[in-house]
């Protein structure tokens, strides 16, 4: 398990992290979401030893991360960085060696990854001569070349075209299948929803939601029922007990049910009005969950 436990961090008076904690199981993908400035990058930098936390720790397989463990982590920083004048092949080999591979093994692994990411012909070119998309691939190769046990990627999808997104997603899923826990941050929530086994939503330095997308859905909006009854008279549901009408528009009705209310009774009431063309618990998108989670509630403001 990769565990982030009770991370606190302030820069001067600015409290950036206020008890961030979550767990990533081996072989699973963890999507890290949050608004700009929520503290995602700081969390990842703490894991990589680039920022020292005021409190809390990050551990892998029960062992707090130290230099030796971090050498087994593949990392992609938010601000991409490579030596601009160094050749692609040499650069990836160099990073492989910094991660502890021997000279021959590093050269082999670099050649393999460069080939796999479709950069075979550019191996001898300086990085600065490559397009941004290709530079991003080199960056990924640098993160993956040492066969890391853990992957921590800060906004790996930003700046990629759809094809690039697909091939990166494929590469990450491949890593996860091999048992590597993958943590990545992203603003592309549809992507997170599609790829990730678990999601963490960070707001104002706190984890406001963690779990599988399913769990979040159940927790956040599990009692929202959408019923479409084209023939019903307006306010058809107003008299039902334990039901609040959230919205109603030409028979397309969104209802919020109290805990004890039986959805089957709502269905019978709907059938009494005529045809029912849609009756389902509403699946909120991750975008809605995210909005819900990061919006400051009135109580919180008062506190």
């Amino acid at each position: 398990m990769l565990e982030f436990d009770g991370l606190h961090k302030s820069f001067g008076d600015n409290r950036v992290l206020d008890g961030v904690g979550f767990t990533v199981a081996p072989g699973s993908m963890f999507g890290f979401c949050g608004s700009n400035g929520a503290g995602k990058t700081t969390t990842m930098r703490i894991a990589m030893g680039l920022v020292r936390p005021d409190a809390g720790r990050v551990s892998w397989q029960g062992r707090p991360l130290d230099d030796a463990v971090r050498r087994r982590i593949g990392y992609m920083p938010e601000e991409r960085g490579l030596y601009p004048k160094m050749k692609v092949g040499e650069q990836v080999t160099y990073f492989a060696r910094l991660h502890g591979l021997g000279a021959a093994a590093a050269a082999r692994a670099a050649a393999e990854w460069i080939e796999r990411l479709g950069l075979g012909e550019r191996r001898g070119d300086a990085v600065e001569k490559l397009s941004l998309g290709n530079q991003q691939r080199v960056q990924l190769a640098a993160a993956l070349v040492s066969r890391p046990e853990v992957l921590i990627l800060d906004e790996p999808f930003s700046g990629l075209d759809p094809i690039g997104v697909d091939s990166l997603a494929e590469a990450l899923l491949g890593q996860a299948r091999e048992g590597v826990p993958v943590v990545f941050s992203s603003h592309q929530l549809d992507l997170v929803e599609r790829l990730c086994d678990a999601v963490g939503i960070l707001a104002r330095g706190r984890m406001v939601a963690t779990g599988t997308v399913e769990e979040l859905r159940r927790r956040e909006a599990g009692r929202l029922l959408r019923v479409v009854v084209p023939d019903a008279a307006p306010h058809w549901a107003a008299s039902l007990t334990g039901v609040r009408v959230v919205s109603e528009q030409a028979g397309d009705t969104l209802l919020e049910l109290d805990g004890g209310t039986d959805d089957q009774e709502v269905l019978s009431a709907a059938l009494r009005t005529g045809r029912v063309t849609h009756f389902a618990w509403r699946q909120p998108t991750l975008v809605e969950l995210f909005r819900e989670a990061v919006t400051v509630s009135p109580q919180e403001v008062a506190a």
Partner: peptide
Amino acid sequence: VEEKSSRVVELLLATLR
């Protein structure tokens, strides 16, 4: 400065003191 301006330094410091 090259390492700082190209931001490669963050990647380096993830493996080096």
